[in-house]
Amino acid sequence: MTTYLDGNAAAGKLSEIFAVDITAAVTRCDGCGQTGVFAETRLYLDAPGMVARCPGCDHVLLRVVTTSSETYVDLRGLTYLRLPTP
């Protein structure tokens, strides 16, 4: 079985992309509709790049792939991210 961590471990990488802390945001899975804190998602680091999956249905929520010159951020598995208004 592939081991996974959780969304907490994505904080550093995501700080390269977003101006706010995404790990404390509430996410809604576009696959099953489950909402939860991003920190509690399942994080796979042994894929090419970083993949966060829904703990409810295993749907891919977010992918981040970094090449030598660019970073791809794929958010299609998220219906929304809910953050406090700064």
Binding site: T3, Y4, L5, N8, A9, A39
Partner: peptide
């Protein structure tokens, strides 16, 4: 209940 998992893969590359 707040959880934090760790494993041998460590953090993001």
């Amino acid at each position: 209940v707040r959880t934090e998992r760790f494993g041998p893969t460590g953090g993001p590359q």
